[in-house]
Design a protein around this nucleic acid. Sequence first.
DNA 1: CCGTGATGAGACAGGTCTGTCTCTTTTCTA
DNA 2: TAGAAAAGAGACAGACCTGTCTCATCACGG
Lengths: 193, 193
Amino acid sequence: MAPARTSAKRQHVVDTAYALFKRDGFHATGIDRIIAEADIAKMTMYRNFPSKDELIVAVLDHRARRFERQLDRLATAAATPGQKIATILDWHERWFRSADFHGCLFAHALAEFGDPAHPVFKAVARQKNGLRSRMQAILEQTMPPERAEGAAAALLMLIEGATLLAQMGEADAAIGNARKAAAAIIAGAWGRQ
Amino acid sequence: MAPARTSAKRQHVVDTAYALFKRDGFHATGIDRIIAEADIAKMTMYRNFPSKDELIVAVLDHRARRFERQLDRLATAAATPGQKIATILDWHERWFRSADFHGCLFAHALAEFGDPAHPVFKAVARQKNGLRSRMQAILEQTMPPERAEGAAAALLMLIEGATLLAQMGEADAAIGNARKAAAAIIAGAWGRQ
DNA sequence: CCGTGATGAGACAGGTCTGTCTCTTTTCTA
DNA sequence: TAGAAAAGAGACAGACCTGTCTCATCACGG
């Protein structure tokens, strides 16, 4: 049988690598650590992923899909656009307070792979633009597209900054003030376009 | 003579390491690369800095001091609190558009050194809290302290997010929308405390 | 039941990492 | 100008890095 694009072993490697990358970073986590933790042979890893870089991209893409699925599910329960944005902040609040929160893996990837041509950089851009597009689509239900575009960018910046503050140990203040600032951004007091 | 705490050689190492850390990251930049680029002997480096970690902290602290000095200078030219906040955004706009902008070195350090007990982590927290305190002090001239605290946190999050977006190649949109959102946050539409 | 593909186990190459050590040379100052 | 401090040069240790290779073993489907 041709190697399935998503086998159980492959997924196990992704999950293990995710936990290690999240805790220790990308360059600081060696292949040997990953295969030891996953309890697999080195060749099993290299047969599924041609290189460490491609494993990193696979981990990021997997987390991005999971994130999108979770937001999709939360959004269905929300009625108004304002509530939909609130569910996104709810998601982040729970995340900030989760036991092994270590900041945003995508932001960390950007820090370690700053070359815009690098596949890891592109994977990060995909995820961030996905979240911005999602919020922009929500906001366009209550405001003109040009304003929605700017507000979505502002909300994305706010969320990214809140994640950084949360990693610095101020999860409560970060999410509380982010909620208030988000309300200010959406509700108006927005200068002429 | 006892080794000066700030010799010319030492500063040269800090400057060279800064350029390399900024471009390639901390773990990805080896000591050998630093001493080759700085054109110094390895022992000169290790006589000034007991370890790579302490060099990183020295680089971060040096940049933080430089940042504070530049903001101090800009603030003197600004009359009102609103203008003082604007000069901080001006500084970031110029930074985003500078030739070798690679994102925030402090955010990158946080990504690679996520342990709150690590000296590098603490150096990052110092810098971010310094910027927040600066903005809070400015805002307290126009609003009650509790509101100034929340608004300063919101502005800090906005700036951090704008820096991340700028690194993703959207410097113009980031700074423009950050300015508008900052105005919305300061001007009001701020929920009951 | 047999063969084919996935996996395990581990040696191996070639390089890089941080940090230490020694010895020589330069530089500065008293 | 003599002596001390600083710096250069580079070998060295011991560990770790990514990625390749070989060979034995296992599972499973025709």
